[in-house]
Amino acid sequence: PATAPAASPGPPYFNQETLQQRFQMLIDSARERWTYAIFWQSSVDMASGNSFLGWGDGYYKGCEEDKRKRKAASAASAAEQEQRKRVLRELNSLISGAGSSPPDEDVEEEVTDTEWFFLVSMTQSFVNGEGIPGQALFAGSTTWIAGADRLAMAPCERARQAQVFGLQTMVCVPLGSGVLELGATDLIHHSTEIMSKVRSLFSFNSVEMS
């Protein structure tokens, strides 16, 4: 996947700890089963001066498929699984310090499609209105895509990728300094309840966020 461009440091639009709390309050208490939430932060590319959306933070709750696929054969090929595990081992070493201790057993467990989709998201970015997150920010309106067929037909590589990895619902809500994306392996139709929660939890300005 493409690597996100170097971003200007910019103002601290959010505090990761409070953002995590907001993610959890939103997803853990929701009537629907959301798999993850991601905040795409609006930043400026230092080289070109163009604005783009890059990884801000995310919360991966998981889904039933995680449990099933770790017990049964994975949908991914053996070679694909091996590559995912290799990347996970390297990331684990990066975080815990290479060679400091033997790798945890969990690193050798199957990396499910939705876990992989979430991990890959950390490397992605969207310039000026591109992709579902970029379009939502540009248009200033929420994009709600429910259904694997609709994701597959969306004019956005990320949406199509989401469908390939088993997601059925993707929602992008523009916020002041970025976009909140929600994803689910369940089919979730528009919910005024979740939108109301998003508004109450994330209706901040840059001063409140920093």
Partner: peptide, 26 residues
């Protein structure tokens, strides 16, 4: 992985930690 910017390390560390919990409780 070497190119993972510092800002994403916290997200990654949190994901790996939560994954460990999910795997052990499965």
């Amino acid at each position: 992985p070497r190119a993972v910017p510092q800002a994403r390390k916290a997200s990654l560390a949190r994901f790996l930690e939560k994954r460990k919990e999910r795997v052990s409780s499965a």
